[in-house]
Design a protein around this nucleic acid. Structure first.
Lengths: 187, 187
DNA sequence: CCCAAAAGCTAATGGCATTAGCCTTCCCAC
DNA sequence: GTGGGAAGGCTAATGCCATTAGCTTTTGGG
């Protein structure tokens, strides 16, 4: 031990995310992260509480990253254009990091650690829908419908679940249009 | 060993599915299945090739079961009513076995073992959509859109991903209506 | 310059999957 | 009926991984 490795929780999560991107969530193991960061496995416990904790931290990171990406894309736009931008940014992020998406938490609101990030994404969607003047539960339903579409498509695409890759862009465009037509039709 | 346990691959999968229903996919372990079937762990290898193989078999079972359930519900109906029935049957199945759905394969067409079952489900959807007279790729896109909606909603609901459970029936009804409106609008 | 907290390490434990090799049950051909 | 081989089970052994305990070393602030 001439010198310390200088790990931090952030660096551990960085390495974990690299691993996930390269080999998928099932390859996320403390032993692999330790090897990648040049440290013995038990040393990681100085930075994360357990493998489960690391998984949560990776999930949080992905959710925050995705939200940031979507936010960037939406700002400065409104109405249909904003919704389209949000939905396409979501898909683009997942396309760029297909393995990663499986690490994103599906129920962030029920996890103390991830709740804030989950609310942030939800508020982004609500803000994006603001100009449609939805009242009360209508806004909730519209948010859920959007989430169902983006998550449904992204999760299937990321796992290679569509039989043929042909025409996937068209399919997604149709879903976006369908969502918008519906939104306009019932406003 | 007075008498044999009389296991078969089917019984092993039955036990595995029970385990998944009760404790979730992450609890599916050869050790747990062995305990439940009253056998030593290595004995399971006489019936399944590996844990991965068992997971595939469980996934196959779920897909077949789900397809059977949807098929029963759709027969005898046509048009919008058939589509509504299919989508609601899918959701109902997943609601009845929430943990199980996480074991269903997302890309059945790319697995030799599961391919036939995947095609069967796809053909059910195509048959259900037949009366809309979709040609060529339009039928493919319509199938994908339906899948995105049912899978997206079911996976989020099954994992408790919707913050509040209130009004979920309404949200789903809206999604079904949105899908049908879109289908009619572009026929 | 000292010393306590932080960051690493090694050793040990226990769960799980998997393989090898052995024993017993069953059933079918004779 | 019966004998023998295949099928179904078992124990023992290996190896990977997570986790805990307890020790050593580095480091940064007083």
């Amino acid at each position: 031990m001439a010198v310390r490795a200088g790990l931090t929780t952030t660096k551990v999560v960085d390495a974990a995310l690299e691993l996930v991107d390269e080999q998928g969530v099932e390859a996320l193991t403390l032993a692999a992260v330790a090897a990648r960061t040049g440290v013995a496995t038990p040393s990681l416990y100085k930075h994360v509480a357990s493998l489960g904790d690391l998984r949560d931290l990776v999930g949080l990171r992905v959710l925050e990253d995705l939200t940031a990406r979507c936010t960037e894309t939406v700002v400065g736009r409104s109405g249909d254009e904003a919704v389209r931008a949000l939905m396409h940014a979501f898909r683009a992020y997942v396309q760029e990091h297909p393995k990663r998406y499986a690490a994103a938490p599906m129920d962030p609101l029920h996890d103390e650690l991830q709740r804030a990030a989950g609310l942030k994404f939800m508020e982004l969607v609500l803000a994006t829908l603001r100009s449609y003047g939805l009242e009360g539960s209508d806004a909730v339903h519209a948010t859920r419908r959007l989430r169902v579409i983006v998550h449904g498509f992204a999760s299937i695409e990321a796992s290679g679940g569509f039989g043929l890759p042909e025409g996937l862009d068209d399919t997604y465009d149709q879903l976006v249009r369908m969502y918008l037509d519906d939104l306009r039709g019932k406003s």
